[in-house]
């Protein structure tokens, strides 16, 4: 009974090869795309392997933007990067943006927000971020764009791509509601940055 499940994944991975070969963004690239757009025209600095950060101003707050370094197909090391930035900058808010698995029947590209570290993988990055956030009593907000496992590794669809502005509005709202002017905020775009530059 597990065969259809494996076949679906194998099929998706097979199709993903063409997408990766042409350097086209995949569904999982939505996090780096949203944060990458905020990073445009700001100086980028390396902070961990394949990971960059930039400083920007959002509603009078100092925003530290973190994401994997595009346009190569990499997820970077958000765990190490965020851990270092939390210890160095002592921010008052952490916002994480990622693709998240939708439930059967849920719409692709739907945006949801909540509390906690939005990051997948084997758990190393999640552990590092949660540990650093807990130690410095830092609230963590998550904004996720829903998609299926197959969509996350396949060519980005229109529904997912068009969530960028919605997420930017949510980021602005959270920042205005939860922080004061001159506060420091870390915003992390989690995911594979294939086909996206900052």
């Amino acid at each position: 009974m597990i065969i259809p499940f494996l076949m679906l994944q194998a099929d998706a991975l097979n199709k993903a090869m063409a997408t990766f070969k042409k350097n086209q963004p995949i569904g999982d690239a939505i996090g780096p795309m949203i944060v990458g757009k905020l990073m445009l025209e700001h100086d980028k600095h390396d902070i961990a392997v394949d990971t960059v950060y930039a400083e920007s101003d959002i509603s009078g707050r100092k925003a530290i933007l973190v994401t994997a370094k595009g346009p190569a197909g990499t997820v970077g090391q958000p765990g190490n990067a965020v851990q270092e930035l939390i210890n160095k900058e002592n921010p008052s808010l952490l916002i994480m943006i990622d693709a998240a698995l939708k439930l059967e029947g849920e719409k692709t590209g739907e945006v949801a927000e909540g509390i906690g570290a939005a990051i997948g993988g084997i758990g190393v990055d999640k552990f590092k971020i949660e540990e650093a956030a807990t130690n410095s009593n830092l609230p963590v907000y998550a904004i996720v764009v829903k998609q299926s496992l197959v969509e996350a590794i396949s060519l980005m669809t229109k529904e997912i791509a068009e969530s960028v502005d919605t997420v930017h509005n949510i980021i602005n709202r959270i920042i205005e509601e939860r922080t004061n002017p001159d506060d420091k905020i870390i915003i992390v775009g989690v995911g594979n940055t294939i086909g996206v530059i900052q």
Binding site: F5, L8, Q24
Partner: peptide, 15 residues
């Protein structure tokens, strides 16, 4: 999660 088998009739997407 029940995902079903790959859809053979899945339409080809234009980029």
């Amino acid at each position: 999660p029940i995902m079903g088998a790959p859809d053979k009739k899945a339409k080809k997407l234009t980029v």
